[in-house]
Amino acid sequence: MTTKANFPAAGGSVVVPYGHVVGNEKWRGSEIAQRLQGKIKLIFEDGLGLVDFHLSNKICILYISEADLVAGDDFKRRLVRFRNANSLGGIVIVERTQISDQYFIAVQKLVVLELGMVLLPVANQAEASQLITQLVREQSKDHNSNPFLRKQCSQLLEPSVFRTVQQIPGVGKTKALLLLQQFGSIHRLCNASVEELEVVVGQTVAQQIHTFLGS
């Protein structure tokens, strides 16, 4: 079954039937598509442009594979083009493997800190299909709002945000938890002053965080 709609090249306003996921035609026959079939209602369309999957009218996924990371900077230009072209809520799924791990920190900084998008690492397409299924179920619970923009993280997103904050130099599990409890989101953390950070983690780590985030 294929639902026809007018999909702008940059992934603009898209009508996604409730309870469905609209996938880019290029994913037809892939492992991720095969694993999604039967778990969710997956339909394919040409013309999604930069977007790989639309979870709803306002939230979509851009998938960065291990091969994309190794190949060079094309994926970075794609992400920047997407971010500049529309106001969709973009979730970036990245294959973090032994081969691509060396690129992950740079990708994390670009996606989360510079572009303000959600980053979710996966090991492979099988794990990605499980994640997309969870995201769709999360949407069905709260389809009138974007769960990724709420101050209180959803149970699904919280581990990813938690891991992301831990990657900041000088921040471990305890400090990451304290920072998220204090600031509520990575966006607010990026905008925090050294003085505000000092209250939570002390002067030395506060300066490290401030320098890393480029505030």
Rank of each mutant, 00 (worst) to 15 (best):
L50Q: 12
L36S: 05
I209D: 05
Q166I: 07
L178R: 15
K109T: 00
K26I: 01
V201G: 04
T97Q: 06
V16N: 00
Q139L: 11
Y18T: 09
I99Y: 10
R81S: 13
L180S: 02
K26P: 00
L42F: 06
A176T: 10
L79P: 03
N86W: 03
E127D: 06
V200P: 06
V201Q: 01
C190D: 04
I61G: 02
K4N: 10
G90S: 08
F75S: 14
R137L: 14
V205P: 07
K41Q: 14
Q98S: 08
F7C: 03
I64K: 13
S140R: 15
K175Y: 11
L189C: 05
A106K: 04
L36T: 06
F44M: 08
G202Y: 08
H210Q: 08
K4F: 12
M1A: 15
D52I: 06
E127Y: 06
G172R: 11
A71W: 05
L197H: 06
I93G: 03
F7W: 09
A71C: 04
W27V: 03
F7T: 03
V136D: 00
Y103I: 03
V107Q: 08
A126C: 00
Y103S: 07
T2E: 01
V201I: 04
C60F: 02
L69A: 12
S30F: 15
H143G: 10
S185F: 12
E25Q: 09
L55N: 13
A176H: 13
I186N: 07
M117E: 10
F7K: 03
Q37Y: 14
L131D: 09
F44N: 07
Y63P: 05
F75E: 14
S140N: 14
